[in-house]
Each structure stands twice: as structure tokens, then as C-alpha cells.
Design a protein around this nucleic acid. Structure first.
Lengths: 359, 359
DNA sequence: ATTAGCCATGGAATCGATTCCATGGAATCG
DNA sequence: CGATTCCATGGAATCGATTCCATGGCTAAT
């Protein structure tokens, strides 16, 4: 048993604040255990070529020194970092918060830690993070991508860094993905509104630089036509998936010469923004103006009236993304997964107010 | 100009999916630029001891090879990782989502990336992450800690890893922190309720294993006494800062022999839970039962009635935490920062319904 | 009993960047 | 014009773990 002078607790305590000493390495552990660094390493990584004796001695030394292996050194040699990069657009959006939580927990269960990046719907910032992920030599990336395959995205794929897209995809880039089949939910929503007697439905679209923005708009247009709603292009407002654009969108649509009697927002922050505008204008939701949101959030059902939404299982999406990513890391080529969406009718989508639309 | 056969794009493209080749190192860059690795390294790290010629040649080589330096190797030698660890309890809580977003953006602006950990209000999971942060040799940690200084927390501090507490603190651990002065906001809220004529106010407390849970309860109790409200201990329900416990708390408090006429929840998820219970019971908020939440959230003002809240500046909290952390990393010993809180009166905190409290 | 085979072990090379140190050439000064 | 300083540069050591490879001690098989 050796004494390691610069580790003596008493000395540290005496100074009040600890001072960074030379950190403990596997050699210290090996020396204390009376084995070589190679053997200590084998014990730590669970290599079966170790005797019970050395396993026990190394474990004791690790505990006594409170040894925390240097992840950088390990990663450098073994080319595995046990880090995954998670790129979302904004964790303040509850959808991405749920997604990030689910992915992070699933990754942790598999021994990975998560580097989080918020792209803020900005392509330069997305690229900044992808470049960082490359430099960090992450074992894999889960991304909700934006745009049409930026240079950093190509750099990622050229280096064969395992990547899975989540929520969104990029045309022409063949990467496993976990997405939502927005079409079914939107179709149900439009059908539901048509049945309630709505004819002019305003659509607050997401940015057309995202696959979800495009897909949902296409689904909406197709369904509007199918169920005989107005296909007036003025009824579509292009937002950016953020709350302020929802407000602006609602404001714009309500100001049309022929305003809609119902609004459908392509994500929840924009729905919240639209809600705020409707409140400000004193419109009663579900009576003066119907509102349906894509994405369900716990408290949407607590609003008065409770919001009709298109719901999908975000937690499953995060979990599945991690599962697919692990398969890619493992050298497999998993199939993409498409999760269902469905309409949940609550009380914000009633029949149109006859006083609306007739100025 | 050399050719690097395994990097030829055509070959990669031909295979459809890229195959991980030997990755490009600084030696490749140096060779292509016709300088030594040492010089290339100096250029890359902005060391002034470089000639304009080599700067230009290295830059060209970096661009041509799309070189991304191996962060692990760099960290191993230089003992700086440019990674900070961010430990929160749950990003699905909008408060922590805002905090995480603000901290991550501020860190990015300073050249740091963020490892995110969700402790889920679980001490073992908190420790798991702190241990991981130690192993990753992060340059600093921002944590919303729980409990009374776990072993991993001490391990962190013994190693002199720069740490800043955010939102919460741990008694007896002297670490710079950024917290909210909950007391002023809670005092205002209680005074406001007293003025409205409430006498029995139910308090849905946070877990007493957190400093915020304890502080807010103490503030509430003190204010209740000061303004002459009932100090009946049955009016305090102990939740865990998560939504379900808010529901349970409201349910429990409403079932008392002498139920309260107002509820105050110590964080927003519990307020949402309480809201759900009130809805389910058909109670009109602000009329049958007043409700005030600690933490403001964008859509609280969109509820009907808009929620009275105790608000604080979460974005500033995240930004400040990063600033303090950088100061600690820089060897300084910054003062802790306490941010103010204030009551925002909206419509959920009206006068008590005389029919309540008399079964 | 002798050899083949297995297995735990330690020494040494390795991962990729940074940094210390010695060196040689140009610039500057007396 | 010779001596001194300055500065860009390359070689080599280094960070801390992993892993290849050779070795020696055992057991098992003939």
C-alpha cells in the first residue's frame, strides 16, 4: 500500500478549496494493485483474460483511489468515445424537449452520453455543431436536420459517422430515420373540420426548408382538396416553427378579405402563438375560430376549451432513434421507422361561427 | 500536392455508403502543406510563432482535406476539452429547457459544447452523470444539484473541477451559484392572496431534498404567518416538482376537511398537474379555487383565466451561470448571483368563493 | 515423463495532437 | 563586418489508456 502525498484529504481540506493535482492514472491503480497497467486495463474493460486475484486487487485499488479513467485517452486509442451527438432545433420546443429526454435516457442506458446541440433553425449553427461532432469523434449522431444537405452534413456522412435522422429527413440523403406519418393525422384533422362544416381552413405551415414543413403542407393541401375545402393559396401562411410566427400567421390569416373559420398549425409553438393572437383579438376558440395543433402537449388538454390535436408518440421516437443508431454503429443497415399520428378531438374544433367570413 | 488514395470522392460515392477510412491527421495536413506537424499545430491553434507563408499553406491544406482535428487527442495533451457538463433534473420541465437552451447557447458562443444530463430528480442518476463528467474531464460543470452532497459531488470538487450551481445549492458546499430569490416573489404572492381575502392557502411544495424545495416552503410559511393566513401544516403537500405530484397534491388538499380556497405550487409542472385536477373536478380556476404558480411559462398567460405567476428571468440565469463558470475556469472566485423574482398578477387569483371551505 | 496447449501477464507500440527544446538563418546592432 | 538577438521551424517527448505480442507458468494429453 503506497501513500500518494498529493492526494491526502487533510491537505486538500485545509486549503478550503481543492487544488487540481496531477490526476490519478491507470498506472497509479496498477502500482497500488501490484499489477501492470496492461492488466489493470483488462480488468477495467472486462477483458476475460484476467485472474480473479487481479480483478479483486484492481477493483480495490480503483475504489481506494476513486479512479475515474480518462475518457479522452481511452477514446484516442480505442476510437470509441461513447458519446453521441444530438442535434435538435430548439429544446424549448416541448416536442424536442421530450425527444431529447427520451434519446438521452435511452443512450445513457446503453452507456452513451449525449452532446446536445440546438440549431435554432439556423443552418450555420447546425453546421457548427455537426463540425464539432466530427471533431469530437462522436460514435454517432441523431439529428433533426434542416435544409438540403449542407457541407457539414456531407462531411459527416463521408466520414461514415453513424447517423440517424429523427423527425425530419433530407431528400437525397440515404440515412435511416424515425419520422412521423403526418399525413394520416392531418388527413383526419381536415376531414374532421370538413365534417364540422368548415370550408376555409387557414394553415400555418412550417418552414419549407424542413421535410416536415413540406410534407405537412402537402398533406394539408391534398386533404383540403379531397374533402372539398377551399384551396385558396392565401389560406396558407409560411411560419418557421417558432411561436412568434404562429402569432403573425394567425394575425395575417384573420386579416384576409375572406378569413378562415379554422386554423391548423404545423407544430405546437406556432399553435401557442396563434392562440395568443386569438386571445388578444378576443376570439373564442372553438366557437369564433377553430384551432387544431400538430403535436400534443400535456397541458393542451387543460386549455379552455381543450385543444384538438394531432398526436404522435415522441418518447417512442427518441427511443427508436437510439435503437437505430446503435444498429448503425454495430454495422447494420436498419430500416427507417415511420410512427403513426392520429387526431385527438377535444373541444377547439367545433362548427364554424356563421358570423365569421362575412365581413 | 499529394494524392491521398483512400480519400478519393469518386471511390466513396461509388460504394453508395462511405466506408470509414483512416481519418485525416495533422500529419496529412503538414505533409500536404510541406511543413512539420509542429508548425501545422501552431497554425491551427493560432500560435503567433508562425510565418505568413506557412499559415497560408496550412490553411489551404486544411481546406483541401476538410481536416477536423481530433478533439480527444487535443484534450489528452492539453488538458482542456472545451466541454462543459450541464446537469439538470429534467429538460421536459420548461424551466430547465429554457435554462439548458440559454446555457448551451452562451457556452457555444465561448467555444464550449455541452454534455447534457437529466438527473430525473434521482440521486443515483445525478451521480452517474457527475462521474461521467469527471471521466470526460469536462472543463467545468453547471449543475442543479439534489440532495446533500453525494460522493460524486465531492469527487468533483476534490478534483477541483470548476463547478457552478444553478437554481439550487447544497448546504455546506461552497461553490458559486446563480439562484432565484424566491422569497420576494412568494411573499408578494401570499400578500396578494391575503389581500384578496384568502385565509387557507394550500401549498404544493417541492422535494425537501432540494434547496429550492426547502427555501420556498420556508418563505411560504413565514409569509403565511406574517400576513395572518392559516399555518395549518395539513395545508402543505410535499410533491416532487413533477407534474403527477401536482395532481396528487391538489387532489389531497381539496379533500381536506377544511380545504383551502387557493393553491400555490412551487414549480410549473406541479401547477399544471394541479390545474388538471381542478379541471377534472370541474372547479373554475380563479373563482372556485385560486391558483398561483412559481415559474412563468409563455402559455400560462393563454390559459383561461390567465395564470397569476411568480416570474424570474431564466434566460439570464443560464447566461450568468456560464459567465460564472468561465470565471472559475479562469481561476477567479466569483461571487454568487441572486436573481429577483416577482409576482405577476393575472386572473387566476381572485377572491375566494364563499361556498368553499364549508362542506 | 515429456510435450503441446492454454492462459494470465508485462513490456512496448500506438492513437493524434501539443509543446519543449535545440537549431539554423535572417535581421539588427555596435 | 562580426557578434548578438530574434524567430520560425522540426524533432522528439508527452498526455493516459488500449492492445499486440512474446513469455513463462500451468495443466492436460500422449
Amino acid at each position: 500500500m503506497e501513500s500518494i502525498p498529493w492526494l491526502m484529504e487533510t491537505e486538500l481540506q485545509a486549503r478550503g478549496t481543492a487544488v487540481a493535482g496531477p490526476s490519478i492514472t491507470i498506472k497509479d491503480v496498477a502500482a497500488l494493485a501490484g499489477v501492470s497497467a496492461a492488466t489493470a486495463s483488462r480488468v477495467l474493460s472486462g477483458n476475460p483474460a484476467t485472474s480473479a486475484t487481479s480483478r479483486q486487487k484492481v477493483a480495490a485499488a480503483v475504489a481506494q483511489l476513486d479512479f475515474h479513467p480518462n475518457a479522452q485517452a481511452r477514446a484516442l486509442r480505442s476510437t470509441r468515445t461513447n458519446i453521441i451527438g444530438l442535434l435538435v432545433s430548439d429544446v424549448r420546443n416541448p416536442f424536442f424537449a421530450d425527444l431529447a429526454h427520451a434519446a438521452e435516457q435511452a443512450a445513457l442506458a446503453e452507456g452513451f452520453v449525449t452532446l446536445l446541440g440546438n440549431a435554432n433553425e439556423s443552418i450555420p449553427q447546425q453546421d457548427r455543431y455537426l463540425d464539432t461532432f466530427i471533431s469530437q469523434r462522436v460514435d454517432g449522431v441523431i439529428a433533426a436536420p434542416q435544409g438540403q444537405g449542407s457541407s457539414s452534413l456531407h462531411a459527416l456522412l463521408e466520414r461514415a459517422i453513424p447517423t440517424v435522422f429523427v423527425d425530419r429527413t433530407v431528400d437525397g440523403i440515404d440515412v435511416p430515420s424515425v419520422t412521423t406519418d403526418s399525413d394520416s393525422g392531418i388527413r383526419q384533422a381536415v376531414e374532421h373540420l370538413a365534417r364540422q362544416g368548415h370550408e376555409r381552413v387557414g394553415y400555418i405551415a412550417g418552414p419549407q426548408s424542413t421535410s416536415t414543413g413540406r410534407d405537412r403542407l402537402r398533406s394539408f393541401s391534398r386533404a383540403a382538396e379531397e374533402f372539398g375545402l377551399s384551396t385558396d393559396p392565401a389560406l396558407t401562411y409560411f411560419g418557421d416553427f417558432q411561436s412568434a410566427s404562429g402569432s403573425a400567421g394567425a394575425h395575417h390569416l384573420l386579416g384576409l378579405a375572406q378569413p378562415p373559420t379554422a386554423l391548423l398549425a404545423a407544430d405546437s409553438p406556432m399553435a401557442v402563438g396563434a392562440l395568443a393572437t386569438l386571445h388578444r383579438k378576443g376570439l373564442r376558440i372553438g366557437r369564433d375560430m377553430a384551432l387544431i395543433a400538430f403535436d400534443d402537449i400535456e397541458w393542451f388538454s387543460l386549455l379552455d376549451p381543450p385543444l384538438t390535436v394531432i398526436s404522435h408518440d415522441v418518447e417512442a421516437m427518441g427511443r427508436t432513434a437510439v435503437r437505430l443508431l446503435l444498429e448503425v454503429i454495430d454495422g447494420q443497415k436498419p430500416e427507417s421507422v415511420v410512427l403513426p399520428s392520429e387526431l385527438i378531438v377535444r373541444a377547439s374544433s367545433g362548427t364554424p361561427d356563421p358570423s365569421m367570413g362575412q365581413p
